[in-house]
């Protein structure tokens, strides 16, 4: 591992920029993400910053069970996120649709049909600690030695 790569690893580990996307959730998971920002959990001490702009983000947090309006927009939004990028889905809805997945409903879960999902956090809603753990572990795995992995892929 080169020196530059190790510096990049160190920086990326403590600077994860997050953008959250609500694809038709009930706001329960969004409130749980909001609790991560509060002094009790305080995600900034782990080096996670919230930017609601996909062009600045490293990780997108998807909540909700894919309403029809999002079906073309979510892959589009995912394309705008610069590499290296990760997707963490929060709650049951992106996995199964949970309570919204009933006969006659128009939502179309899972989210992994439309964009590649790195980690999924089950729960209705999940605890803030589970969300932070998922973001940290997924981002660490995915962003480590990104340049070297890209070279190896070529």
């Amino acid at each position: 591992m080169s020196l530059l790569q190790s510096i990049k690893n160190g920086v990326r580990k403590r600077s994860i920029h997050v953008c959250y996307v609500n694809t038709g959730s009930c706001n329960g998971c969004d409130i749980e993400i909001l609790a991560c920002l509060s002094p009790r959990y305080d995600i900034e001490q782990y080096g996670i910053y919230v930017h609601n702009n996909p062009r600045e983000a490293d990780v997108i947090l998807v909540t909700g069970g894919m309403s029809p309006q999002w079906i073309d927009k979510l892959p589009d939004l995912f394309d705008r996120v610069p590499e290296p990028k990760a997707v963490v889905t929060i709650g049951n809805c992106p996995i199964s649709g949970c309570v919204f997945n009933r006969p006659g409903c128009v939502i179309d879960p899972p989210v992994s049909k439309y964009i590649p999902v790195t980690a999924a956090v089950p729960g209705c809603p999940p605890r803030p600690t589970e969300i932070i753990n998922a973001i940290l572990s997924a981002a660490d795995e995915l962003f480590k030695n990104h340049e070297e992995k890209k070279e190896a892929k070529k």
């Binding site: 049951n92 996995i95 199964s96 949970c98 309570v99 999924a120 089950p122 729960g123 209705c124």
Partner: peptide, 10 residues
């Protein structure tokens, strides 16, 4: 019993 994560709401 077997719990399926992603469906269970705890």
């Amino acid at each position: 019993p077997y719990i399926t994560y992603g469906h269970c709401v705890r």
